[in-house]
Write a protein that binds this DNA or RNA. Structure first.
Lengths: 119, 119
DNA sequence: CCAACTAGTAGGTCTCGCAAACTAGTGGGT
DNA sequence: ACCCACTAGTTTGCGAGACCTACTAGTTGG
């Protein structure tokens, strides 16, 4: 069978790299716990739209493998079973440390680009 | 011969993806033109340190191939020849359009992460 | 039965890091 | 003169990681 490969959806997808995990950790920090499907919707609302399910689920597994989140399966109450994720202590530490580095980096990059746009 | 592979330098390297080209375009917009070696130093000063030469030069070639910059070789005054790069009209357009998208995205991501850190 | 939910896998792509080669001048030691 | 080390610059090959698309597959409610 021939896999017809569509165009990748451009630069925006590159910007997620290395930020998406922080974004997920941040969402979990806000609500205590959540599962994949609604995380996708919350990401979209937070201004990171179009994150693919096939991107998020492996990411959640990576986070769990790294010990930053813990997973718990619960049978569905009005729907299929859901796998809830919650921050571990290690996850919270990672969020604060890496989060600070990210905001530093992002602010520098935004400042640079804006200077260039004004020039 | 065995290639000993060093650890990649962590998450920061992912953050460059899709931003480094904007950063370079922005630097060129500020000064009109520049060449690779000094661009590396200016990137470091702008808060994007440790960009590798082997990363920047292929990037400059990509930008040239895409018509966003034009290259001009000049014989060296006190050193080897230098390849100067300058924005094209298309490059300036790309900078303003993509730059606005980037700052949008980055601000959303920073806001989200900071909310999570405070929670 | 269909639509909305929910989770997962396989394979591919792209951009980056690392390492090293290569070219050209400059200055020091012998 | 000659060699060497150092700085300034550019280029290229290989490898890796995190994302994408496409596809699979289950459950529940109208």
């Amino acid at each position: 069978m021939v896999l017809v490969r569509a165009e990748p959806r451009g630069r925006r997808t590159q910007w997620l790299r290395g930020v998406l995990d922080l974004a997920v950790l941040a969402l979990l920090a806000e609500t205590g716990e959540d599962y994949g499907y609604t995380l996708l919707q919350r990401l979209a609302k937070a201004g990171l739209p179009d994150v693919q399910a096939g991107t998020l689920y492996p990411l959640l597994n990576r986070l769990a493998a790294d010990g930053l989140v813990r997973a718990e399966w619960r049978a569905g109450a009005g729907g299929p079973g859901r796998k809830f994720f919650a921050l571990t202590d290690e996850g919270r530490t990672a969020l604060t440390e890496r989060g600070a580095e990210w905001t530093d980096f992002a602010r520098n990059a935004v400042a640079l680009v804006e200077r260039g746009m004004r020039a």
